[in-house]
Design a protein around this nucleic acid. Structure first.
Length: 425
RNA sequence: GUGGGCGUGGCCAAGGGGUUUAAGGCGCCAGGUUGUGGCCCUGGAGAUCGAGGGUUCAAAUCCCUCCGCUCACCCCA
């Protein structure tokens, strides 16, 4: 590659998904569609950008995502738009905008879509990544929390991933969380002189994240910090116990993690994450979700409880590779058509098209190469059969059909060759 | 935003001031007699050694700046 002038490259934090990677993508997406179909979730696609206010209101002004990670821009009319930094808010917008409260509740929806966040890229973290997510809107029953969590778990299982941890917590609702936050802040305020700089900032901006600090100095403070589940109101307590009961019923090996909090403000009650065992930091989270009972109302709808989940496709593929799980190879055409001379080329073009019209995949050789070179190409492409058209075949009105695995070949009419290929499919 | 590592043909890489007109391997293209692949052999194309500046008689090799990639923190999928 010439580098003495400007050379174009994919923008930082983005990547090209080359043909050799497509097998993994297809595999993951097929499993995603399958698990959704199994649970009655219907696909939805929303615009890649939305009114900036949708995300600010839902995710929360103080969150990192809104404060410093959004791709926002004014369009030509001056309206502020933002490249979707998460998938839930747009789905809620759709629910409200299209009057989905008139459908049988809950409404079950899923999406597979690109997500954009301006972050420093590293392993498993990109500025554009693909998320698979699903949402059940319009039902506050804990059975639905369990359904969503089970669905997430079965999704990973169906991909062949093993050794995962399911972490669960409840962060309360709008009636009990404020008092919990007060008690948390009070606890930390008393110990402020021992806190790391990050935690001092969190104390003001995002107290829940105090529980997530990994610094040595803050660990023992964290250990005896007030827990959200000890401050739940009776209804949240009931809800959480039911979720636990259902998960046990479903045989899901979950662990209650009192320090599990999530980075988006809209969560209430149930929050959960799934990650590979023994990988604490380092972008290990494979997916996560929770309940967001106030969000629809916040966005202008009627009070409507909801619960959802989202997974990062790139991280799933990373873990498939770590666990040596190979993706199925996408199918490819199986007949290679080689020819010698202009007259044979006409036939080759015609026959290639006729094969494809019969559903038999075919690739034409490149013009002007020796038969040797043509067959070398067929071999390199991994073709199962080759059709050869040269002077001999033209004279007889036939073609040579060669089996590229056994090396056997024989002349026959094109019609017979096509019939034989069809049988072998 | 903070910190560490790294930048030699499409990919993997040797070389750490002059013997480099920059090894080798993979891949690509072509040939090994007249129309036949996979193995082997031979040849070819492809790099101003990330960019700019400096030191020196001499720089891919030393110094500086920038850019890019990568990993970790922060945060998250």
């Amino acid at each position: 590659m010439k580098r003495n002038e400007f050379s174009y490259r994919a923008p930082r934090g983005t990547s090209d998904i080359l043909p050799r990677e497509q097998g993994y993508w297809r595999y993951v997406e097929e499993r995603a569609h399958a698990i959704c179909q199994l649970h009655g979730y219907q696909r939805i696609e929303t615009p890649i950008f939305e009114d900036t206010r949708l995300f600010v209101r839902s995710i929360g002004e103080e969150t990192d995502i809104v404060a410093k990670e959004m791709y926002s821009f004014p369009d030509r009319s001056g309206a502020m738009m933002t490249l979707r930094p998460e998938g839930t808010a747009p789905v809620c917008r759709v629910y409200i905008e299209h009057g989905m409260h008139n459908l049988p509740q809950p409404v079950r929806l899923y999406y597979i879509a690109p997500i954009f966040r301006y972050e420093r890229p590293q392993a498993g973290r990109y500025r554009q990544h693909q998320q698979f997510g699903f949402e059940a809107i319009g039902d506050g029953n804990p059975a639905l929390d369990a359904e969503v969590i089970d669905m997430a778990w079965q999704f990973y299982h169906s991909l062949g991933l093993r050794g995962l941890w399911l972490k669960l917590n409840s962060i309360g609702c709008s009636s009990c969380r404020p008092s919990y936050l007060e008690s948390l802040k009070g606890y930390y305020a008393e110990r402020i002189e021992r806190l790391c700089p990050d935690c001092r900032r969190r104390l003001v901006q995002n107290p829940l994240r105090l529980l997530d600090c990994k610094k040595e100095s803050c660990v023992d403070i964290k250990e005896s910090a007030p827990r959200s589940i000890d401050h739940l109101c009776p209804r949240c307590q009931d809800h959480f116990q039911s979720v636990e009961k259902y998960l046990a019923l479903l045989d899901l090996p979950f662990n209650v993690d009192h320090r599990l909090v999530r980075g988006l403000d809209y969560y209430t009650r149930t929050v959960f994450e799934i990650q590979p065992q023994g990988e604490e930091g380092a972008q290990s989270t494979l997916g996560g979700g929770g309940r967001y009972d106030d969000l629809i109302e916040q966005l202008g709808g009627k009070p409507t409880p909801a619960v959802g989940f989202a997974a990062g496709v790139e991280r799933i593929i990373l873990n498939l590779k770590r666990q040596n799980i190979a993706a199925p190879v996408p199918p490819q055409p199986d007949v290679f058509i080689s020819y010698l001379g202009e007259e044979a080329k006409d036939k080759a073009i015609e026959y290639g098209s006729r094969l494809r019209r019969e559903g038999i995949g075919a690739i034409l050789a490149s013009s002007g190469r020796s038969l040797k070179a043509q067959l070398r190409q067929a071999n390199a492409l991994g073709m199962s059969y080759a059709i050869i058209i040269g002077e001999e075949e033209l004279g007889e009105g036939k073609v040579t059909l060669r089996d590229m695995v056994s090396g056997e070949q024989r002349q026959m009419s094109f019609e017979d060759a096509m019939k034989s290929l069809k049988e072998k499919q």
